[in-house]
Amino acid sequence: MSFKNLAERQIMKAQAEGQLENLEGEGKPLPERAPGPLDTAAGMRIMAAAGAVPREIELKKEIEVQRLAVKAAEGTADWKQEMAKLADLQLRYAIEQEARKRFFT
């Protein structure tokens, strides 16, 4: 028996037993799907629901904050230092993305 048939049988069984009624979000549109592979998006959603934030997401937030710092420091002596911090964060972010991609392949 193929996995598709097994999954469909389990869904039909759950429907017949009424297990798919009165679920959270019933009757509402599905949430927007994150870009990228479905398995990665599902994993990120599960982690977010559990309160665990991957380092990749933390770095993305730090990059946004640092971009504002670079913009504020434009034309001052601190600009080069702020740009160096931004470049470092972007490099770390790229490393985290590459590590995740390699892990899932």
Results as ranks from 00 to 15, higher is better:
residue 27 G to C: 06
residue 18 G to C: 06
residue 62 E to P: 01
residue 104 F to W: 05
residue 78 D to K: 14
residue 49 A to S: 11
residue 57 I to Y: 01
residue 100 R to S: 07
residue 78 D to Y: 08
residue 46 I to S: 04
residue 48 A to F: 10
residue 58 E to T: 15
residue 92 R to N: 08
residue 89 L to C: 03
residue 95 I to E: 10
residue 68 L to H: 07
residue 63 I to N: 01
residue 59 L to A: 04
residue 5 N to D: 13
residue 21 E to G: 04
residue 1 M to A: 12
residue 77 A to L: 13
residue 25 G to Y: 05
residue 27 G to H: 06
residue 39 D to P: 00
residue 27 G to V: 06
residue 6 L to F: 12
residue 6 L to T: 14
residue 25 G to Q: 04
residue 94 A to L: 11
residue 47 M to R: 12
residue 82 E to F: 02
residue 67 R to V: 02
residue 10 Q to T: 06
residue 44 M to S: 05
residue 88 D to L: 08
residue 96 E to G: 02
residue 17 E to Q: 15
residue 56 E to P: 00
residue 92 R to H: 07
residue 31 P to V: 08
residue 38 L to W: 08
residue 74 E to H: 08
residue 20 L to N: 10
residue 14 A to H: 10
residue 16 A to Q: 14
residue 17 E to F: 09
residue 54 P to I: 11
residue 51 G to F: 05
residue 79 W to H: 09
residue 90 Q to W: 02
residue 83 M to C: 03
residue 24 E to K: 15
residue 55 R to H: 04
residue 63 I to Y: 03
residue 3 F to P: 01
residue 71 K to E: 13
residue 22 N to C: 07
residue 99 A to P: 00
residue 28 K to E: 11
residue 75 G to V: 04
residue 100 R to E: 09
residue 49 A to D: 13
residue 38 L to Y: 08
residue 31 P to S: 04
residue 58 E to I: 10
residue 81 Q to R: 14
residue 64 E to H: 05
residue 70 V to N: 00
residue 22 N to L: 08
residue 89 L to K: 00
residue 83 M to S: 00
